[in-house]
Design a protein around this nucleic acid. Structure first.
Lengths: 203, 203
DNA sequence: TCTGGATGTTGACAGTGTCCAGATCGATGT
DNA sequence: ACATCGATCTGGACACTGTCAACATCCAGA
């Protein structure tokens, strides 16, 4: 009985290619990405990906969109475990930095305009979905704190801080080690940063 | 009389290669970078760069280090134009986002572990130099505000927020446009984010 | 002066993305 | 049942890439 990979028509090649792409990026980084290597791992000819994604950029765009989808899913789930809005905000932050670890390949592509088609409709939709989770929570935080501040400002500041933390984490740890300090928990850092934002929104 | 580029020995090839590399990255993005194209623009054979930078990673590492150097220089100059520590902090933030525009090529490489040798000694030195400018100013802010908070925490939060702002700026503007809002000045955003951090450091 | 090391060149090799023509399959209509 | 057509996949080709080895050129110090 032929398995699904033996057949001329793969069956679900797009998903298989996405998984292979994530593996390759995870091992070699986005710079070492190779479309042919991806095809090889999916057990398919080197031109097969083009029929589904057009272009290397198309495949990476699809990976990025998948990243935003799981970001929306995990942050939604994390927020749902708390009632207090501030705790929800912290949980979202923790989920964000956790995702940067568990899905490093996706995250290393999501904000890279040179690798991804920023105008792709599904990418924009998925990005917006992830944003609205944070925005919804931030709205509740603002109400809970009873302050009068711009929702978009706060939402973007929160996202910026988390994203910056993720990209600078390496340098942060390097400096910490250089100075002989104890290693710092990124989760704790997220909580302290979030606390500063919440306090700082009061006039 | 032969110009410097006519001679067998270029004279200052490393700098010429760095400049060419910055041009290429600026036009094609870090993903479209090509060592041969850089050599072509410098008017030199395709293997010449190897003698100065070893491989492509070496050249990009050098570009990144240069980026940190000019970051240190511009933030230092920006801070020197004010006396009030909080104003200095804001000026540093403005200089940071300005650098992301004026030196987009450098910035698109500085925090990319897959493109750059993070263990390179000169890169680490330059990165530390840029960090210490922000740290010095943040120390003054903390004293000025008379609060008792961890200096490293605040410094990294400030850097994270600025860095996140720069990488998310595109998505931010896209959403803003989608909702039909007026375009937002990134400089104003930096000032508001900084103000939140300064307020939030009070217990 | 000559000699060694730094600097730059040429040629080669495997690997890459994309285009093109063709092969194979599955669903659809008769 | 069967022909057909579009979707899916293959193989070959092309220009381009990074790196290696062997060679050429030049400068500086013994």
């Amino acid at each position: 009985m032929p398995t699904v990979t033996d057949r001329y028509h793969h069956g679900d090649l797009p998903n298989a290619l996405r998984r292979a792409a994530v593996d390759v990026i995870g091992e070699r980084g986005p710079a070492g990405f190779s479309l042919r290597e991806v095809a090889r791992r999916a057990g398919v000819s080197h031109t097969a990906p083009a029929h589904h994604f057009g272009d290397v950029r198309g495949l990476l765009t699809s990976v990025a969109a998948e990243g935003f989808q799981t970001l929306e899913a995990t942050t939604t789930a994390a927020a749902a475990e708390h009632d207090d809005p501030v705790e929800q905000l912290m949980a979202i932050g923790e989920a964000y930095v956790a995702l940067a670890r568990s899905h490093a390949a996706h995250c290393s592509v999501m904000f890279r305009p040179d690798l991804v088609d920023q105008d792709d409709a599904s990418l924009r939709t998925c990005g917006l979905g992830a944003y609205s989770v944070l925005e919804r929570t931030m709205r509740r935080v603002i109400e809970h704190e009873g302050v009068d501040v711009d929702l978009d400002d706060l939402t973007w500041m929160c996202w910026s801080t988390m994203q910056g933390l993720v990209t600078l984490e390496g340098k942060f740890n390097a400096l910490n080690e250089l100075r002989g300090n104890d290693p710092i928990s990124t989760r704790d850092l997220v909580r302290r940063f979030t606390a500063i934002i919440v306090r700082g929104m009061h006039t």
